Amino acid sequence: MKIYRLRYPDSVNIRQLDASSLAIGFFDGVHKGHQEVIRSAQKVADDLSIETAVMTFDPHPSQLFSGKSVGYITPIDEKIRVLESLGVDTLFIVSFDWELASLSPQRFIDIFIKKLGVKHVIAGFDFTFGSKGSGTMKDMQELSEGKYGTTIVSKVTFDQDNKVSSTAIRQLLSKGDVEAAAELLGRPFRTTGEVIHGEKRGRQLGFPTANIQTAEEHIVPANGVYAVRCLIEDTWYRGVCNMGVKPTFHDPEHRIPTAEVHLLDVNIDLYGKKMAIEWLHRIRSEQKFESLDDLKTQIGKDKQTAKDLLSD
């Protein structure tokens, strides 16, 4: 997959760019609704014998307008991975800053659609662009001057008429419902990070763990214990993971939640390694134990529950 990072007005010109069918949107999560937009772009690309392209933006517009960090379902590296797995040929990552946010819909189209050789634009029914989001897909078509076609993709729903959305997925993850989130994503929710040195409490309890430092802007599931799969250097391992603040040892109000993974099948040195965690099943909420013996007993039960859940 070819990747181009664009920034207005400095870096917007690309030489020898192939004609494309373009799916456009922010696509946080690259969930089933987003995948429908991308599939539509791929179908048009096949019909026209051109490439499939995706245009996304970084950072999230609300981060620019509010000044607050956004909890991403798919930070940019994860978004790139998922889009490549879907067979996208070209990815445009456009810097979302005040220069871009001030563009009129006409100017946006001139620079980011017509100049990039786009032959067809596909977006969701609620996609907007240009200054204050004033441009709609109706404007996209009316301003085309016959140089490209457009397709609007209707909302994708779940549970009768609920829209598949990044907001819905965030809400599910905030409750720890990783299985329902996976249904909307079309794949397990994944976080990535580096294994860092922790307090070694798991080792002292007989259950050595790896502490994962995830990116601050990456949303994580609610505190609790989960059955997970972990990818380390191209190998998958089964694991049980505690996401939380370890209330048995710490005051929960003064701790930042961290992911602590115990691998079920092996005991290997992971410090400094990159790890991807796929959150498959929630086992229980995080809780405080009255004694270390009670905690050890529960960890043993959690480990067995994780083995049973991951045995298929």
Rank of each mutant, 00 (worst) to 15 (best):
V153P: 03
F127A: 03
A101E: 12
W98F: 15
N162M: 03
V195D: 01
F125W: 08
I196G: 14
A168K: 06
K115G: 06
H197I: 00
P188C: 07
T191V: 14
H197E: 05
T191L: 13
T150Q: 06
S154Q: 14
Y148P: 05
Y148V: 11
L143M: 09
K200C: 12
K119N: 13
F112P: 07
F112S: 07
T167C: 03
E179L: 05
G133M: 02
T191Y: 13
T150M: 06
R190C: 05
T151D: 15
S134H: 13
F112T: 00
T151L: 14
T192P: 04
T90D: 12
D110Q: 15
S102I: 13
L103I: 13
T192I: 06
K119E: 12
S174H: 10
A101R: 15
I196C: 14
F127E: 04
V121H: 01
G186P: 06
N162T: 08
R107A: 14
K155V: 01
G135S: 02
V195W: 07
I109A: 10
K115L: 12
F129E: 09
S144F: 06
A168L: 07
R107G: 11
G198P: 14
G133N: 10
V195S: 10
S144L: 04
S166N: 02
E145T: 02
K175F: 02
I111E: 02
I111M: 10
Q106F: 11
W98P: 11
H197A: 13
L91E: 08
G198C: 04
I109L: 10
F189K: 02
D139P: 09
A123S: 04
L103Y: 04
S131I: 14
V195N: 09
F108S: 11
M140I: 09
K155A: 02
G124R: 10
V164I: 01
F189P: 04
I122S: 01
D177G: 03
T167G: 09
K155N: 04
S104K: 10
P105F: 13
R187Q: 09
L143I: 11
V118D: 02
S144N: 06
E194H: 01
I196D: 11
T191I: 13
R170Q: 00
V178D: 05
R170I: 03
Q160C: 14
H120I: 06
I111A: 01
L116K: 01
E142D: 10
A181Q: 02
W98E: 15
T136P: 01
D126L: 01
Y148F: 13
T128A: 10
F189Q: 03
E194M: 13
K114P: 00
D159R: 06
R107V: 12
I111L: 09
I93L: 12
F158S: 00
D177R: 11
E179H: 08
V164L: 01
P188E: 03
Q106H: 15
V94C: 10
G133F: 04
T167D: 08
Q160W: 13
